[in-house]
Computed example of a mutant assay.
Amino acid sequence: MTPLLASALMPLMRGLDAELAHRLALKGLAMGLAGRDSRPDAPNLATRALGLDFSNPIGLAAGFDKDATAILPLMRLGFGFVEAGTVTPRPQEGNPRPRLFRLTEDKAVINRMGFNNAGLHEYLLRLKHLERPLPAVLGANVGVNKEGADPERDYPGLCASVAPYSDYVTINVSSPNTPGLRDLQGEERLAAILAAVAPPTVGKPVLVKLAPDLAEEALEPIIEVCVAAGVAGLIISNTTVARPGSLRSPLKDQIGGLSGAPLFEPSTEMLSRAWRITAGRLVLIGAGGVSSGAQAYRKIRAGASLVQLYTGFAYGGPALVGKIKRELSRLLKRDGFAYVADAVGTDA
């Protein structure tokens, strides 16, 4: 099967319960049923960020493959990087079902999964047994358990455990579905966690993933904390608890984090603000609502060195990756940019 054919089957998957469809998709990917995109990336898509070389700047966000069960098949679809997780120290079931909802009319998803995952031990076993060298960059996204968590203890342990088997590590303090987690974004608490992690000692670039719901005045102090601690970059942004008035789906009032098309504008605005504040001191990864090459390009021009997909990929399927890359390459050429890096921040 090819990515194009796999994408053609997506409407059938949307007839299933959202979480069941996700599980089946991961199993199909792990079995290689989505095929691969064997076309080489256009030279102008190559970029270097976080001290790493990417064949293209399009990545898969954390949350899709929480337990690292389909890393290689996902990379073979043409992603420049794949971020696995969020993984917690101990296995946990997550929140009661139903907890994943398609807002089809809005090209959006609401989830309140609650860091459901098989735990660090299983996650590490899978990373250790990956066939290397990997065809793309691998990120590991880490978080804390709902019960019994000690962030100043858990995050350093998680980072130290996953760093030998990944190319970068993301500290998730911004999921809305673990009680109290977003409080860890506060300036003082985040500073304490990062002091415990000591990013420069981890051995791999450490990133922090932020929520789009931060108060405007909170962003600059958080960025300064990250810079002072030696963090390499930020992911902007996670899902939102806001509910825009434009939402049409009858599921719009479900509790959880909203992702997809409605998140594109607010997350891109936050990205622009972060670019202006960081002034080149941190690498920014843009996430939120990307489902086309034009939208990826807007993230890049707003300040993102790299871009992540999630909900757009869930709706568009495997063929979307190649489509976005081809469109992005054309836009870079149209505007006279030889490489992705030349376009970063040009609108910010």
Rank of each mutant, 00 (worst) to 15 (best):
K128F: 02
P133G: 13
Y165I: 10
A160F: 06
L134R: 04
L158T: 09
Y165R: 08
V162R: 14
C159F: 10
N145H: 02
P164L: 06
D154H: 05
A163C: 06
E152D: 02
E152C: 06
V162K: 10
Y165G: 06
L138S: 11
C159R: 05
N145R: 11
D154I: 00
D154T: 00
V144A: 13
K128G: 09
K146T: 11
R153E: 03
P164A: 08
N145F: 01
D150C: 02
A163M: 13
P133D: 13
K146A: 15
N141M: 07
G148S: 08
C159G: 06
A160G: 01
L130Q: 10
L138I: 08
L134N: 14
P156R: 01
P156H: 02
L158D: 07
G148C: 09
A140E: 05
D154V: 02
A140R: 04
N145M: 06
E147D: 11
V142Y: 00
L158R: 00
Y155L: 02
A140M: 07
R132W: 12
G157C: 04
G143K: 10
A149C: 11
H129S: 15
Y155M: 07
E131G: 12
L134K: 08
N141C: 03
H129K: 15
P164D: 04
K146E: 08
P135A: 12
V137A: 09
E131V: 12
E152N: 07
G157Y: 08
G157P: 07
N141K: 01
A140D: 12
P156Y: 07
A140L: 13
L134D: 13
K146V: 11
L158Q: 15
R153K: 15
C159K: 09
R153I: 12
G139K: 12
V137E: 07
P135D: 05
G148P: 05
P164W: 11
E131Q: 15
P156S: 02
C159A: 15
A160V: 05
G143T: 06
L158M: 15
L130E: 15
L130R: 11
L134C: 03
L158Y: 01
S161F: 08
P135T: 13
H129I: 01
N145S: 00
L134M: 14
A140Q: 04
A149Y: 08
H129W: 10
G139M: 11
E147C: 07
R153W: 03
N145G: 03
G157V: 03
A149W: 07
D150F: 09
A160Y: 04
L138R: 13
C159V: 13
R132L: 00
V162L: 09
V144M: 11
P151V: 01
L130S: 09
E147P: 01
N141L: 00
G157D: 04
Y155P: 01
N145K: 00
G157H: 00
R153M: 02
G143R: 08
E147N: 01
R153T: 12
E131L: 10
E147K: 14
Y155W: 02
A149H: 13
E152I: 02
N141G: 01
V142T: 03
P156C: 03
P164G: 03
P133R: 14
V144R: 10
G157R: 01
R132H: 09
E152M: 01
V162C: 00
A160D: 04
V144H: 09
